[in-house]
Design a protein around this nucleic acid. Structure first.
Length: 401
DNA sequence: TCTGGGGTCCTTTTCCTT
DNA sequence: TCTGAAGGAAAAGGACCC
């Protein structure tokens, strides 16, 4: 199988080209003033001086993405905004607008499937393509087709994209990073030792920060050094499955097909508070957020046409430690009140004496709602009230909200 | 002044039943 | 009746990705 890995670069606001720009900040609930500021204005007409600066930002949040001029200063994805402001105070800070990204995402994926129907969705800005069967796909090692895709996406959306071409998904993904932005890179099987092995292990999709540190403590820094280790040794230190996979990855081997269809496994909503909240002192606020999260999850499920029966919560404490609690209920549901009731039961099983920075609600074990066997009618209101009263009565850890 | 939100997948722990 | 082993399912946690 021959694979493409394509990722688009999402940059609107042409007037900001060449400037350090950071997109991020925690997404506020509907009344985000910063967001409102832009909704009525043609994006290209906003003067540069009107954009907010990173140094003026107060509050929580991380960087979603940054332009290349901003990255020069050492800021990058997932970095806290306050830390980034120290490194590059003059950077312009833009709010995240996922609705808009989703629109563009759909458009660029539509363009690709017109040309190459075997496409795997890997998120808002990335896809894998199996072009083995695309007419003319093999011409010039895939370069001709890659150029056509780039050109078509640019025409349809104004977005540029990077494309990696390789014998499998693993290598195509690595190849796509060789030549950013808007590049095309081709990696052939014979390029493994020259192009792949000198790279740090972290470049392998599936090797994260934890694994990277562990590899380094064993003196393994590059993919080549990883490839040199005996599989037995890797299995010993990284487990049967992951260790074996590391070995295969280092040798550029990957048999995974391009998967064009997949069903969601869970749907969730979570939010980080502006300031840490306390279950007792901020009971009203927490209760409102909790209800709101349950309603959002229910709405998401209904919109997507799914029901689920494993209801869960997630808390993050002020020390950033997270806990989760799940409960599987008897019937599939997409009803906000039912979800809130089950999630409320989960809340009783966690420590609520500590300050909270995040609250989340999740529904798993999903089924398409048209295939659900035993949907029950909506909760009777007296049942819901009973649940609320039970929550208010408190548990071993003290008062609940 | 730390550290988003939406997911997936895997491993380990816990719990229930036999 | 008590205890323990075994095995499966559910729950919990963690790593990773975009």
């Amino acid at each position: 199988m021959d694979a493409f890995y394509a990722s688009v670069e999402l940059l609107r606001y042409p007037q900001l080209k060449g400037l350090p720009v950071v997109i991020g900040g925690s997404r506020r609930r509907p009344d985000d003033a910063l967001l409102q500021q832009y909704t009525e204005v043609l994006l290209s007409e906003i003067p540069v001086a009107a954009f907010p600066l990173l140094k003026d930002y107060t509050g929580r949040g991380v960087i979603t993405t940054a332009t290349y001029p901003a990255r020069q200063f050492g800021v990058g994805s997932a970095m806290g905004l306050m830390k980034a402001a120290k490194l590059c105070p003059q950077a312009i800070l833009l709010p995240v607008d996922f609705d808009e990204y989703r629109q563009y995402s759909r458009r660029f994926k539509d363009v690709i499937t017109e040309i190459a129907p075997l496409m795997e969705d890997r998120g808002v800005d990335e896809v894998y393509i199996d072009f083995t069967e695309v007419p003319g796909g093999q011409r010039d090692g895939g370069r001709t087709l890659a150029r056509l895709i780039q050109k078509s996406i640019l025409e349809a959306t104004g977005l540029t994209c990077s494309i990696g071409v390789a014998p499998n998904k693993l290598l195509a993904k690595m190849a796509s990073e060789f030549n950013k932005p808007k590049g095309i890179s081709i990696v052939l099987p014979d390029d493994l030792q020259t192009l792949i092995w000198p790279l740090p292990c972290r470049k392998i999709n599936g090797v994260g920060p934890k694994t990277d540190v562990k590899l380094q403590t064993h003196g393994i820094h590059t993919i080549g050094e990883l490839a040199a280790r005996e599989p037995v040794w890797l299995v010993e230190h990284f487990g049967k499955s992951y260790g074996a996979w590391l070995h295969e990855a280092a040798w550029g081997r990957d048999e995974r097909p391009v998967v064009t269809e997949s069903e969601p496994v869970s749907v969730s909503r979570e939010t980080t508070f502006e300031r840490d909240l306390h279950a007792v002192r901020d009971k009203a606020e927490l209760g409102a957020v909790f209800t709101w999260l349950c309603e959002r999850v229910a709405a998401d499920l209904q919109r997507k046409g799914y029901v689920g029966k494993t209801i869960g919560i997630k808390l993050r404490y002020d020390d950033f430690k997270s806990v989760t609690r799940d409960q599987t209920i008897a019937h599939y549901t997409a009803d906000a009140k039912t979800i809130r009731q089950a999630a409320g039961q989960c809340l009783k099983r966690v420590d609520l004496t500590r300050r909270l920075r995040l609250l989340g609600v999740r529904v798993g074990s999903l089924l398409r709602s048209d295939e659900a066997p035993d949907l029950i009618p909506k909760q009777a209101s007296d049942l819901t009230n009973a649940a609320l009263i039970a929550m208010d009565s408190g548990a071993k850890t003290g008062s609940l909200f």
